[in-house]
Nucleic acid binder design. Structure first.
Lengths: 139, 139
DNA sequence: ATAATTGCAAAAGCTTTGCATGGCC
DNA sequence: GGCCATGCAAAGCTTTTGCAATTAT
């Protein structure tokens, strides 16, 4: 995702293009692994040391509201942000804070078919995500 | 879950039986719907107004560490606690804070069979949970 | 008896807010 | 020009921590 694409995305969503927004977006792509706000702020220190903490949170909220980012739930209660917008699942490491995306269209089809014929009583499903917990193999 | 059962559970896990621990356990069962620490503290006000906030958090940590409770992730970054220990999934309401348990053995078997024959590269699965987001039907 | 738990209050995160300043369209 | 976004610092909320006093075993 290059700068031009980021600018396009902002414009498409009727968001003003500011250097802060572009920089924050770039930082998230550079980090590439579900960064926390804290991670993003550290990353910004490198090239944009003057972006303030409050702005980072405000921009993240804006981007989430415009669905350019997704918030990822964590057990620790710290918010993390994910720029991958297509439906996908997450692999959570039991031992570290690592979180990876997991995409599997075949599996999604199985799930959808299952819930199509096994509707949940009193509940209208909008989206299904897996939290897959375990360990990354190091070899 | 009666008081006697709670006491048993604590003993079985080599935890000392204190009035605070029992009361907190009872509060969680009384609330019955993935309460936050805040919810638990309010509930305790009714019958045990002298249990301090710090103690509640410490007890919750202890119970989670002993696997008598499970932490539930939320998008808002607030921790919630669930006394249901069997493997189960969660239904998240898009519009309110409501979270319900969803158990489905048939579905669990399908998932397990799927990942048995479609192992994830470099990842050892320990547990799979669904986050099902949508709306509760009011009728 | 002794080791663990509680209570209290202070502090530590992380995140939000308000308002004046500055920048985008 | 007008409105929106930013910066800064202060405040908010939830959660954690330290230590002395108390309680369970």
């Amino acid at each position: 995702m290059g700068t031009a694409e980021i600018i396009d995305k902002l414009k498409q969503n009727n968001l003003r293009v500011t250097p802060q927004r572009v920089a924050i977006f770039e930082a998230i792509y550079a980090l590439n692994n579900h960064p926390t706000a804290e991670n993003i702020i550290s990353q910004l220190q490198k090239n944009h040391p003057y972006i303030s903490t409050g702005t980072v949170y405000k921009v993240l909220d804006t981007l989430v509201a415009s669905k350019l980012l997704i918030k990822v739930k964590t057990e620790k209660g710290i918010l993390r942000y994910d720029p991958v917008l297509s439906t996908h699942h997450h692999l959570y490491c039991l031992e570290t804070d690592r979180i990876e995306d997991y995409e599997d269209d075949e599996f999604d089809e199985i799930i959808n078919a299952y819930f199509e014929s096994n509707k949940i009583k009193n509940f209208q499903i909008k989206e299904i995500k897996l939290q897959i917990t375990g360990n990354f193999k190091t070899n």
